[in-house]
Simulated assay, not measured.
Amino acid sequence: MTTETRSLPAVAPGAWETPFVIMGYDEVVTHDTVWDEHSHPFHERLRNERGTSSAVVGSRVWTITPALGLWMPAGTLHSGSAVAGTWFRASFFGFRTTSSISDAPVAVEITPLLRLLLDRLSDPELSAGSRAAIEVLVLDVLAPSPRELLVQVPTSALLRPIAEAVRKDPGDPRSLTDWASALGVSPRTITRAFTTETGTSFARWVAAVRSQHAVALLTRGWDVEAVAEQIGYRSASAFGAAFRRTTGLTPGTFRAR
């Protein structure tokens, strides 16, 4: 399948005049699409109505779904990608008219109320007074989520072989003990390294990689059982429970969207 690459400029916060408070943009990408590294003069809130996309800042990779969006502060250098068929919806927040909910990229829960308010702002016949009132409500309910589909990719010489193998094949069955034996170190050494570099354990890091991969496969139309087998779960029910913990949706519900 053809991949489309898009280039955008790197712009400092507030460098361009942004007279809006909140402005929306949406698009259905017809090809797998990659955005080169860039930054915006305004804050950005990303979400998908359908499908999956990702945003990369340094060694951190977020997956964006219909239930989990992402807040990208103005001036943050990031790249991104989206699977063909993804319907993404961005909201731009004026740098001088709104404050950032976070100084760093952070996941945002797409609640039914937030979805309703943002959809209402897309009405071209909305009066100025109604728009101002809804924008206040959006800024009031917009908040970081306690959940996020984030993978911090380790880059040390010790963990790089593990990261490359698991990201290439999330179904890789090797355990912490297996990797320790292969690399000639103790399991405790790998455990400490994962905690230091990623802030999480080896097992949770693998689960996050698997969830990100599952989102992409479900978007491409794979059935739940095939995805579970592909990414290393022994049963569809075990995969479903893990997927719901990280995304807020069952695999079936996500696939339907």
Score class of each variant (00 low, 15 high):
residue 152 Q to G: 07
residue 230 Q to D: 08
residue 221 G to F: 08
residue 33 T to N: 12
residue 85 G to S: 03
residue 142 L to G: 00
residue 181 S to N: 14
residue 213 H to V: 06
residue 181 S to L: 14
residue 68 L to Q: 07
residue 30 T to S: 11
residue 143 A to D: 05
residue 106 V to W: 02
residue 239 F to T: 07
residue 147 R to F: 03
residue 106 V to A: 05
residue 149 L to K: 03
residue 85 G to C: 05
residue 97 T to I: 04
residue 174 R to E: 09
residue 73 P to C: 12
residue 77 L to P: 15
residue 51 G to A: 09
residue 241 A to E: 15
residue 193 A to L: 03
residue 163 A to D: 01
residue 32 D to T: 12
residue 24 G to K: 11
residue 230 Q to P: 04
residue 198 T to F: 07
residue 122 S to H: 11
residue 27 E to V: 15
residue 117 L to A: 03
residue 243 F to D: 05
residue 36 D to G: 14
residue 223 D to E: 00
residue 162 I to R: 04
residue 182 A to M: 11
residue 70 L to V: 07
residue 131 R to L: 07
residue 114 L to S: 09
residue 7 S to C: 13
residue 172 D to I: 00
residue 90 A to W: 09
residue 11 V to P: 04
residue 114 L to Q: 07
residue 102 S to Y: 04
residue 117 L to W: 08
residue 121 L to K: 08
residue 232 G to C: 06
residue 167 R to T: 15
residue 24 G to Y: 07
residue 35 W to L: 14
residue 2 T to P: 14
residue 109 E to N: 09
residue 3 T to P: 01
residue 223 D to M: 04
residue 163 A to P: 01
residue 246 T to I: 06
residue 31 H to M: 08
residue 68 L to P: 02
residue 79 S to H: 04
residue 250 T to C: 04
residue 252 G to C: 00
residue 57 V to K: 09
residue 212 Q to S: 14
residue 39 S to P: 13
residue 158 L to C: 09
residue 197 E to Y: 05
residue 79 S to F: 09
residue 87 W to C: 05
residue 149 L to H: 06
residue 106 V to S: 01
residue 10 A to P: 06
residue 98 T to K: 02
residue 220 R to K: 15
residue 235 S to Y: 06
residue 134 I to G: 01
residue 250 T to E: 06
residue 223 D to F: 01
residue 163 A to H: 01
residue 5 T to P: 09
residue 165 A to I: 05
residue 162 I to M: 03
residue 1 M to A: 14
residue 54 S to H: 10
residue 106 V to C: 05
residue 148 E to A: 10
residue 160 R to N: 02
residue 112 P to V: 02
residue 3 T to D: 12
residue 237 S to N: 14
residue 30 T to I: 13
residue 171 G to S: 03
residue 14 G to F: 01
residue 83 V to W: 11
residue 33 T to R: 13
residue 97 T to R: 13
residue 241 A to S: 15
residue 92 F to R: 05
residue 21 V to E: 12
residue 214 A to T: 00
residue 100 S to N: 07
residue 90 A to Q: 13
residue 205 W to Y: 02
residue 50 R to Y: 09
residue 229 E to S: 11
residue 23 M to P: 06
residue 225 E to M: 08
residue 69 G to E: 01
residue 207 A to R: 05
residue 228 A to G: 08
residue 13 P to Y: 00
residue 45 R to G: 03
residue 74 A to V: 02
residue 174 R to F: 06
residue 80 G to L: 02
residue 170 P to F: 00
residue 242 A to W: 02
residue 144 P to L: 10
residue 103 D to G: 15
residue 2 T to Q: 12
residue 214 A to Q: 00
residue 87 W to E: 07
residue 135 E to I: 07
residue 198 T to Q: 00
residue 123 D to C: 03
residue 126 L to G: 02
residue 56 V to H: 10
residue 182 A to G: 12
residue 189 T to D: 11
residue 182 A to D: 14
residue 246 T to C: 05
residue 41 P to A: 14
residue 44 E to S: 09
residue 38 H to Y: 12
residue 9 P to I: 09
